[in-house]
Design a protein around this nucleic acid. Structure first.
Length: 474
RNA sequence: GCCCUCAUCAUCUAGCCCGGUUAGGAUACAGGCCUUUCAAGCCUGCGGCGGGGGUUCAAAUCCCCCUGAGGGCACCA
């Protein structure tokens, strides 16, 4: 049985890169009919954890990455780590280090100056009991360091990259437990992965250099190591690590901009993986069916906002209007276009007119605002272009007279009548449509006019025309 | 500085493992068609195997070197 985990630290948000890691873990678990576990790595005492992971949980749920176990919190498992560290101490595979942070820093700088590797100098590795007692008497509290083998190499086979090896001499005696008794990442991670029976560790490429340390820990603790798979990084357009300077990096920020979860998921899946062939659009079910860890790319991927937008507009076009209407409500509320008591059915009627125009939910309000306002504002340039001159004012007035007599007030009847009007007046149809569009929407760009008029209704349409003629009268 | 990883259009990528393709698709960009605006859709164009050596009848594909990019080197995760 495959068991994988996603183990974020409780920052205030789910980073795009973390989300991709979560997705690939989830996909692999689903594909293998295994278990996807959520674990919160909150062993950093300095970080105040309060509700910081709430946003992470929200983002996971929004993307539909449901977990079968957890969330587990490392902060609640401290006894377990202490017990394991004690074992390492007893078997001589770890030791107490009394060096002060300032001392370490100074020695690190010295080493760097001499052109040596900035590694811990193993000063406390072979302390005699007298030396230890002396340091204890000074009131020093020890941190626990892992005794890394001085020779040999640590080799592992990465599922995505093949064999990777490190010389043990390149690895320092890293701290596994701080002087306050809180374990560090590498130790807690290994202990948890063992006790949670994780079979496959799928994580970012930035963890490759942690892997030999962890494997050494697995060996020292007598655990069988899992398989490892390191995912490529996600970079910004300038090829540097994706960060705030490239724009939004959290999943929730994209949700709030009006991206659909389907698009986000599709986009994330394509960042470092591809189903092969020429497919770009892929559903959650297809991803699960076709996902293969071995097909994951080895090179970093650049976050391509244009592609995300394109994918989103695709899902906007193909999603059911009722679904989009429901998701669009908060965006309309934010613009003050709808109150708590508005009718969803009008919105549902309007969505089909804009779903292939708005690239995100966030763009919907500016396409549909005139349906929800009593008084619309007129763009000065639009008025200037279509409502100022005599010809268009006259055509608009005639249009109003024609529209007044249409019954029922639907697209077909409106179109027939307006085209007939244009013909009678000897002008092109658009000479009638354009002023009418500006009169009703206040803009030169809008959803299809005829459908819009039908939904708006005769009364409001006529009122708008009067308003428009008033706006432009001397 | 040391260690590790990676390398196909501007970007995401198919192809690489099992050498023989006019190196394919998508986004973006440009042009055209359609059209009541804007979109969408359709068509066309632009554009790439980082460089150098091998191996081979034949290399994007196999090997080596260089270069470039990314990651790591915490009592962070």
């Amino acid at each position: 049985m495959v068991r994988v985990r996603f183990a974020p630290s409780p920052t205030g948000h789910l980073h795009i890169g973390s989300a991709r890691t979560a997705l690939f873990n989830w996909l692999y678990a689903m594909k293998m009919r295994g278990v996807f576990i959520l674990r919160i790595e909150d062993t950093d005492l300095r970080r105040n954890v309060d509700e910081a992971f709430g946003a992470i949980l929200d983002a996971m749920k929004w993307l539909g990455l449901d977990w079968q176990e957890g969330p587990y919190y490392q902060s609640q498992r401290l006894e377990l780590y202490r017990k394991e560290v004690e074992r390492l101490l007893e078997t001589g595979k770890a030791y107490r280090c009394y060096c002060l942070p300032e001392e370490l820093e100074e020695r690190r700088k010295e080493a760097l100056q001499k052109g040596l590797k900035p590694m811990y100098d193993r000063k406390c590795r072979e302390l005699s009991s007298e030396e230890r007692e002396k340091l204890e008497r000074e009131g020093r509290k020890p941190a626990i360091r892992f005794k890394v083998p001085l020779e040999g190499k640590t080799i592992f086979k990465d599922v995505i990259r093949g064999e990777i090896e490190f010389y043990n001499s390149e690895i320092e005696d890293f701290v596994i437990m701080r002087k306050d008794g809180i374990p560090t990442y590498n130790l807690a991670c290994v202990v948890d992965d063992h006790y949670m029976e994780i079979t496959d560790v799928i994580r970012g490429e930035d963890h490759i250099s942690n892997t030999p340390k962890q494997i050494l820990l697995y060996e020292a603790l007598g655990y069988a190591p899992p398989r490892f798979a390191h995912l490529p990084m996600i970079l910004g357009p300038d090829k540097s690590r994706l960060s705030k300077r490239h724009g939004a990096t959290s999943v929730n920020a994209y949700r709030d901009m009006g991206f659909l979860p389907e698009a986000m998921l599709n986009f994330l899946a394509l960042l470092g993986w591809s189903p092969g062939g020429n497919r770009e659009i892929i559903s959650r079910e297809e991803m699960i069916a076709e996902f293969e860890l071995e097909r994951v790319k080895r090179h970093p991927a650049i976050f391509n906002m244009d592609k995300l937008i394109w994918l989103n507009s695709h899902y906007m076009k193909t999603s059911p209007p009722t679904y989009l209407a429901r998701l669009a409500v908060p965006f309309l509320e934010k613009e003050g276009l709808v109150g708590p008591d508005f009718s969803l059915s009008v919105l549902e009627a309007v969505i089909p007119l804009v779903q292939e125009r708005a690239k995100t939910l966030g763009e919907i309000p500016r396409w549909v605002d005139f349906f929800f306002k009593d008084e619309i504002e007129y763009e000065p340039s639009a008025v200037e272009q279509w409502l100022k001159d005599e010809l268009h004012r006259k055509l608009l007035l005639s249009a109003k007279e024609v529209l007044e007599n249409i019954e029922p007030f639907n697209k077909e009847n409106i179109e027939t009548a307006l085209r007939a009007l244009a013909e009678r007046e000897g002008v092109k149809a658009k000479e009638v449509f354009h002023p009418l569009r500006v009169a009703v929407t206040g803009k030169t760009v809008s959803p299809p006019l005829l459908e819009s008029l039908e939904i708006l209704g005769k009364a409001k349409t006529l009122k708008r025309i009067d308003q428009a003629l008033g706006v432009t009268s001397p």
